[in-house]
């Protein structure tokens, strides 16, 4: 009985295998598309640990940056025909989550693999790690807790972290600390906020073409100046140098979502 079962299994898997390889040859030649995240402050390139306060916010307050990291997740690409390529997400965080760390140049480029051929018109992604992933328990890959982008007391990932200093900050050591996070919502808790932002950036007709021979790269700019001055208002380092709880970072989270845009495409 067992032998028969094994034989059937082998036959069946061979059949499936043949099916698959045939499919690949005839209909799809998937390719790769890269998303490059380039962090800037207005017109200057972002540099960490400058010896002086090299940058300025929209209010003219000087600052420098010592740490900038954020999570990008659940990436989708829209094709000309309206269909989507969805970057697969793994329950344990090992796929579909990307940590962009200014200090690690390699992390600035996300490689989307196995993308069906075609003309793509827009990209959609989330900034952060949302509630559904939290229910899966301990994570690995870019979501490994030893990376430290995590609030242990109010468990959840920090979606976007910026630390630095400004001479006008009244905090100890003139520190600037902006940690954006928070995904919890509950009936009866009016101040619990979901700061997960999903944004869609269109390629404005300059559509990357994916196929087996081309691996286009989309150049996305994240402007830190807009993080401090956006749809939710102007953040002053003098009066607001620290944000590290969900409710307190509602405004910077809104600004954060508006700080990303597509600059150009390398075909």
């Amino acid at each position: 009985m067992k032998n028969i079962l094994i034989a059937i299994t082998i036959l069946f898997s061979a059949f499936v295998f043949i099916q698959c390889t045939e499919d690949e040859v005839t209909s799809t030649e998937n390719g790769t598309l890269k998303l490059e995240f380039d962090n800037v402050v207005g017109t200057s390139n972002l540099q960490l640990n400058t010896s002086n306060f090299a940058f300025e916010n929209a209010l003219g307050e000087d600052f420098k940056v010592t740490w900038l990291s954020y999570y990008i997740s659940e990436v989708r690409l829209k094709k000309e025909d309206g269909t989507y390529f969805v970057d697969p997400v793994a329950f344990d965080g090992s796929k579909g989550f990307y940590l962009i760390d200014e200090a690690d140049a390699e992390s600035h480029v996300i490689e989307l693999k196995d993308v069906p051929p075609g003309n793509y018109t827009e990209v959609t992604f989330k900034i952060g790690v949302d509630a559904s992933q939290m229910t899966q328990g301990a994570q690995t890959g870019p979501l490994d807790l030893s990376i430290g982008l995590f609030w242990s007391w109010n468990s959840g990932y920090i979606f976007f972290a910026m630390e630095g200093a400004s001479p006008v900050s009244t905090a100890e050591g003139n520190a600037l600390v902006y940690h954006v996070g928070g995904y919890k919502t509950l009936d009866g808790s009016p101040n619990l906020v979901n700061n997960i932002k999903e944004i869609t950036l269109t390629f404005n007709g300059d559509n990357p073409i994916v196929n087996a021979d081309e691996d286009p790269q989309v150049h996305i700019i994240m402007d830190l100046k807009k993080f401090f001055n956006g749809p939710a208002g102007n953040i002053s380092f003098a009066s607001n140098s620290m944000r590290h709880s969900p409710a307190s970072c509602v405004d910077v989270a809104q600004n954060m979502a508006a700080a990303f845009n597509v600059d150009h495409i390398h075909q």
Partner: peptide
Amino acid sequence: GGVNHLDFVPINAITNPVEFDESVGDIV
């Protein structure tokens, strides 16, 4: 009730300065 999954409970004890005062990376 700040932690909503059992897996994330020990992180609190590990990183709390009045408990283990240790980093997750160091333990690993």
